[in-house]
């Protein structure tokens, strides 16, 4: 599947452009996409902290929604369904638009 990724503000410099089309295996999620995009030390360092976690101030949108508030995995605990928020595990589908922002604000 193909997803379109857009970069903004200082990330345009970091990723060398305004947008990219990325080919991913089906069932991929945001983490897989970021792993593919962060193909240099500098990119990895800007996006992930030392323990490999997405830096909390980086904003990622999937089709305009903050991934933090998208649905992620669903599990069952003692027969009760539990829905986790997506974050980096939010699933991607063909044609999705992903936007990646450094910390931004003002206005």
């Amino acid at each position: 599947m193909k997803v379109k990724v857009k970069f903004f503000a200082t990330f345009r410099e970091l990723f060398g452009g305004e947008a990219k089309e990325v080919e991913l295996g089906s069932g991929s999620n945001i983490q897989d996409l970021l792993n593919l995009l962060c193909d240099s030390r500098q990119r990895r360092q800007e996006i992930f902290d030392r323990s490999g976690k997405l830096r909390p101030y980086i904003k990622i949108l999937k089709n305009g929604r903050d991934i933090k508030f998208l649905e992620g995995v669903r599990i069952e605990l003692e027969g009760e369904p539990i829905q986790f928020l997506g974050g980096i595990h939010a699933k991607l589908a063909d044609g999705d638009m992903v936007a990646i922002f450094p910390p931004v604000g003002g206005g």
């Binding site: 503000a9 200082t10 450094p102 931004v104 206005g107």
Partner: peptide, 16 residues
């Protein structure tokens, strides 16, 4: 971001 891009850094942020 504010010194580099000014308050209009928000155009893409809000439009997206």
């Amino acid at each position: 971001v504010l010194p580099k891009l000014g308050t209009a850094n928000m155009v893409n942020v809000i439009n997206e």
